[in-house]
């Protein structure tokens, strides 16, 4: 009896040993599969973010001595009119994304999903702007907006209007760049909307048709509500997107108009890599990171709320 239980115990012990060994082997292989990605992520994303916060506490020109000055950079930043101006321009970017790019993208998606002829070709042609490099886009539009030889003023002249110097005067310059961003990003939203519209069940429309709904009613009561999650996510993503914006502004109005066309991205670049205020530039980056992080938390939170509601339903 006792030997029996001893044997059983021994077997069990061996089993757990084997299990442990297997577990250790499993952990090792998980580690090996993940390690290249995690290391690269740590070195080139996580560490730099922490370092940015660290640099933001310094007075430093990038080469000489690093002087610790506490939160002075942030104090200076929050009383810096150029910073608030840049932040305001970023707000414009967000608003234009939500109220111009998103609706235009929706319109494009509606057109290429309608019964129009040549949908396939339109799909490609509408999407082309998004594929060009932002640098190419910026340069192309500099010439589109050219006061003397640009096609846009040419069209204005044809209709009897006077030429406008699009990129020279501050207020118009920012509008010009915003138009270019609409051109660049509306196709992106078109793709998002197209994908979510294809996912709407056909039965909904059929049922509505039986109830005698017309096209507009179908759009307002079926299409639009089904797209709401996409619209909400896109709107919050617009905040993150505006923080990532740099290239087109830099190319089209970079430093030319005395700060009023500056956005956070270009202001940070100028402070850091033109004026060599590494500490101050880091403070701007840190603020940009915090805004982005806050948006992400809002997205994740609203997403989990939506899922919860979905589970209850």
């Amino acid at each position: 009896m006792s030997t029996d239980s001893n044997v059983a115990l021994e077997i069990q012990k061996q089993a757990t040993e084997a299990h442990k060994r297997q577990n250790r082997k499993k952990s090792l292989s998980i580690f090996l599969f993940l390690v290249p990605a995690v290391i690269i992520y740590l070195i080139f994303i996580l560490y730099p973010i922490i370092a940015t916060f660290n640099y933001s506490l310094l007075d430093w020109n990038g080469m000489g001595e690093q002087v610790f000055i506490g939160l002075d950079n942030f104090k200076a930043l929050f009383t810096d009119p150029a910073f608030w101006l840049a932040l305001r321009n970023n707000m414009y970017l967000v608003l234009v994304s939500i109220f111009v790019q998103v609706p235009l993208g929706l319109l494009m998606a509606l057109v290429i999903l309608s019964s129009i002829r040549g949908k396939r070709a339109l799909n490609v042609l509408y999407f082309l702007p998004y594929l060009m490099s932002a640098v190419a886009i910026g340069l192309l539009w500099v010439f589109m907006f050219d006061p003397a030889k640009g096609p846009i003023n040419n069209v204005l002249n044809m209709f009897g209007f006077e030429s406008i110097s699009w990129l020279a005067s501050n207020n118009i310059a920012i509008i010009s760049v915003l138009i270019v961003l609409v051109w660049q990003f509306a196709p992106f939203y078109m793709i998002l909307f197209k994908a979510s519209m294809v996912g709407i069940p056909e039965e909904l429309y059929e049922a509505a048709e039986i109830d005698g709904a017309n096209g507009m009613q179908k759009f307002l009561n079926i299409t639009f509500p089904s797209l709401m999650p996409t619209i909400v996510t896109s709107s919050i993503l617009a905040v993150v997107g505006s923080l990532k914006t740099f290239d087109v502004f830099y190319i089209m109005v970079g430093g030319s108009s005395g700060g009023s066309t500056e956005i956070l991205g270009t202001y940070m670049y100028r402070q850091t890599f033109v004026n060599f205020n590494m500490g101050y530039g880091s403070a701007i980056s840190a603020v940009m990171f915090v805004i982005a992080l806050a948006s992400v938390i809002i997205i994740l939170f609203s997403d989990s709320q939506r899922k919860k509601r979905g589970d209850l339903a």
């Binding site: 994303i45 730099p48 940015t52 640099y55 993150v240 740099f246 701007i284 940009m288 990171f289």
Partner: peptide, 13 residues
């Protein structure tokens, strides 16, 4: 979601 700007200076250094 991370803005590239938040990593620029340390990567440059």
């Amino acid at each position: 979601m991370i803005p590239i700007h938040a990593t620029l200076i340390p990567i440059f250094v």
